[in-house]
């Protein structure tokens, strides 16, 4: 199941915006002089980056998946042939029986003194038992620490930062208003650096935005600046390595994202989340 999801994930990566053919130009006629950038004065253009930390471990199997796995391994055993090791074990057993009866030949005796298949098996089991795998379950304190990159190993996490919008601060994906002469992608790159610093490495997937959100400014701001509101274009990125250097950030699961952000904002973000 995890495999299936990753394959879909890569499909999205491969098609997501980086190929021009993926995005169908819309049907309406566009009356604009292409040689001269025509930016509507009415709206602020904002680029926002959704940085995801992909799951580190696979998700736990569901009930039916567990049952199916047991069933498949049973079938596999039934249809398989005996391995070299199993054959050797059988031969060992015959020799041991012969020894017990006392009618063993010299060759058999010689073989009995050698290491048996069972010995080999035991040694392997011992070696395996000595090795301890890292636990699939995190310490609960790690899971609760919202800034820990290793929290909730099997879940997708999204980077949220606290930002000032007007007078109050809200949790948002890192975003920044476009400056003159920038493409949306350049704004997105800048927004990320402004929010989490230079040490934080991630891959932004393509030049095309994956999501859209629009909000209106309060009336006094509208009147003062003559700007209707902001159009937010979301870009998707995958976390690579490094630490965020800002104060107010969290790695949120989808549920936390829903709780921390406004409902309609979350609805727009949810449209392009793969989990």
């Amino acid at each position: 199941m995890a495999l299936l999801k990753t394959s879909h994930f890569t499909r999205i990566l491969l098609s997501g915006g980086r190929h021009a053919g993926f995005v169908r130009p819309s049907a309406f006629n566009f009356a604009s002089n292409a040689s001269e950038p025509h930016i509507s004065k009415k709206w602020d253009l904002v680029s926002s980056v959704c940085v995801e930390r992909n799951p580190i471990i696979t998700a736990d199997l569901t009930d039916i998946e567990n049952k199916m796995q047991i069933f498949l391994s049973k079938i596999e055993l039934e249809q398989s042939k005996k391995s070299d090791h199993e054959l050797r074990k059988e031969r060992d057993k015959i020799t041991v029986d012969a020894l017990k009866k006392g009618n063993a030949s010299e060759a058999d005796l010689e073989q009995a003194t050698k290491a048996t298949a069972q010995d080999f098996e035991d040694a392997s089991q011992d070696e395996f038992a000595k090795f301890t795998f890292a636990s699939r379950k995190n310490d609960p304190t790690i899971d609760e620490d919202a800034r820990n990159i290793k929290r909730h190993l099997s879940k997708h996490l999204v980077l949220l930062t606290q930002q000032k919008v007007g007078s109050d601060s809200v949790w948002l994906l890192p975003q920044s208003v476009r400056k003159e002469g920038e493409t949306m992608r350049q704004t997105a790159d800048r927004a990320l650096v402004e929010a989490v610093g230079e040490n934080f490495r991630s891959i932004v997937l393509g030049n095309a935005p994956v999501g859209f959100y629009k909000y209106k400014y309060p009336k006094d701001v509208r009147d003062k600046r003559g700007v209707e509101g902001a159009k937010v274009f979301f870009f998707k990125a995958i976390y690579q390595e490094g630490e965020a250097s800002c104060k107010d950030f969290v790695w949120a699961t989808k549920e936390e994202l829903g709780k921390k952000t406004k409902q309609d904002y979350f609805k727009s973000v949810d449209q392009f989340l793969l989990f």
């Binding site: 997501g16 995005v23 949306m184 935005p209 392009f272």
Partner: peptide, 10 residues
């Protein structure tokens, strides 16, 4: 979602 974003950008 992506198509909508592209349309709005256009």
């Amino acid at each position: 979602s992506q198509q909508k974003a592209m349309d709005e950008l256009r």
